[in-house]
């Protein structure tokens, strides 16, 4: 069966740290950073990158459209 690996790139400067993406991720990949961006927001990041499948759920619920998603198909 095909397996997917994914990765997200967060525009950390425009992320408002709302956290809506966190529960949207079925693989518990995303966390909010301890650091803040120039606006003072704890931007989101891949806390658990190995688990990302590139499903894009985080990006489609992101109100600010700051998440870009990549995905590759792995042959098992």
């Amino acid at each position: 069966m095909a397996k997917f690996r994914g990765a997200i790139v967060v525009d950390t400067e425009h992320c408002k740290g709302c956290g809506v993406c966190v529960p949207a991720c079925p693989s518990q990949v995303i966390g909010l950073a301890e650091e803040v961006n120039s606006k003072g927001y704890h931007y989101s990041f891949m806390a658990n990158p190995e688990a990302c499948t590139g499903c894009a759920n985080c990006s489609i619920v992101c109100p600010d459209g700051v998440i870009t998603v990549y995905k590759v198909k792995l042959e098992v």
Binding site: A7, G54, S59, G65, V69, Y70, K71
Partner: peptide
């Protein structure tokens, strides 16, 4: 697999319109 190998234009699945 390294993340850098995933983040490539050909693997893009979602970006803001």
């Amino acid at each position: 697999m390294d993340i850098k190998e995933i983040i490539k234009p050909e693997n893009l699945v979602y970006k803001k319109t």
